[in-house]
Computed example of a mutant assay.
Amino acid sequence: MKILITGLNGTLAPRLAEAARAAGHEVIGWDRAAVDIDNEALSAAWLSAQSVDAIAHLGMASARFAGWLASRCPNFLFTSTVMVFDHQPDGPHDVGDTRNARDDYGRYKAACEDAVLLANARPVIARIGWQIDETRPGNNMLLTLDDWQKRDGRVAASSAWTPACSFMTDTATALLGLLERPLPGVHHLDSNAEEAWRFDEVARALARKFQRDWRVEANEDYRHDQRLVGGPSGLSPLSARLAR
């Protein structure tokens, strides 16, 4: 299968590309320097010439582009976020819950979801939480906590927050499965969905696993059961990778 993956300069998309290539698939990216996504005629000609079998849209682009891209390929996957849900009302958040984001990022992702659903009869929309990886830059929980320790001399972690979170390689494997065996609809991919680890527990477990000397200090500054539940697929639990 030939797969177009957008966002290959980002955080999660390279892990998906690694998993796809390891499974024998051909992966191509979208070079925006060569093909301007705002030039619809040029984009259409380039994409048609690629003859892709599937598209995984993980890159940051407008909702208009997300809808346009979804219209070009039946086997289309869009990666969204838990941030489409605000912390009030509290979670856990089911696939059928009303999206009520108040921040710009969450509203942006919700708009992309809507555009994809209008443009493609049977898309896959995969909502994910905070990703964990040993090396990938970007929005990566492990490296973010490293930064907090360096900046503040401690890792402040709310025991009143139950985060949606997963190891990046597990998320990539799940996304690849949804490309290989498309199951249209909204999927919530969260390794914390069943076990409900608190954020301070996750931070301490990561410190042990990756031999970090963080000073983890629990507080209750942020209250939210953020877990993503429901939907037709899931991920291995955090306990498969971390000791509680």
Rank of each mutant, 00 (worst) to 15 (best):
N140Y: 12
A172Q: 07
A164R: 05
P123G: 11
M168S: 02
Q211T: 13
A156P: 02
E201W: 13
R122A: 15
A157N: 08
R208T: 14
S166C: 04
W148M: 11
L235T: 08
R122Q: 15
P182L: 06
P123L: 11
N219C: 13
P137G: 09
L189P: 08
A205D: 05
D213F: 02
L142W: 02
L235V: 08
D225E: 11
I128M: 09
A193P: 04
Q131H: 10
L176C: 08
D190H: 00
W161Q: 09
F210A: 15
R198W: 05
A156E: 10
A156C: 10
H224Q: 14
P184R: 09
R215A: 15
D152F: 15
R212N: 09
A119W: 10
P182F: 02
E217G: 09
T135E: 14
G234H: 00
N120F: 08
L178P: 06
P232S: 12
F210I: 11
L179F: 04
R154T: 14
A160W: 12
P137A: 09
G177Q: 04
E217W: 00
Q131L: 14
G153T: 10
N120T: 06
P163I: 07
D225G: 00
E220P: 07
R122H: 13
K209N: 06
V202F: 06
V216C: 07
W197M: 07
I125E: 06
L228I: 03
F199C: 01
R127Q: 02
S236I: 00
R223E: 09
A156K: 06
F199V: 00
V202H: 08
V155F: 12
G231I: 00
R127E: 01
S191L: 00
Q226N: 14
E180T: 11
E180G: 02
R208H: 13
V216Q: 05
L189A: 04
L145I: 04
K209Y: 04
G177Y: 00
R212K: 12
C165K: 02
W130Q: 07
Q211V: 15
R223S: 08
M168V: 02
G138W: 09
K150T: 11
M141W: 14
N192A: 04
Q211K: 13
T173L: 08
T144H: 13
S158M: 08
A126T: 06
L143V: 06
V229I: 12
L118K: 13
D146A: 02
A164Y: 01
Q226D: 10
D221R: 03
H224W: 15
T169W: 15
A121Q: 13
A205Y: 06
R227W: 05
W214R: 05
F199D: 08
L175V: 12
V124H: 01
E201D: 09
H188N: 09
A205C: 06
M141A: 05
S159M: 10
V186K: 04
T162S: 08
W214C: 03
I125R: 05
F167D: 00
A172K: 14
F199L: 14
G185H: 11
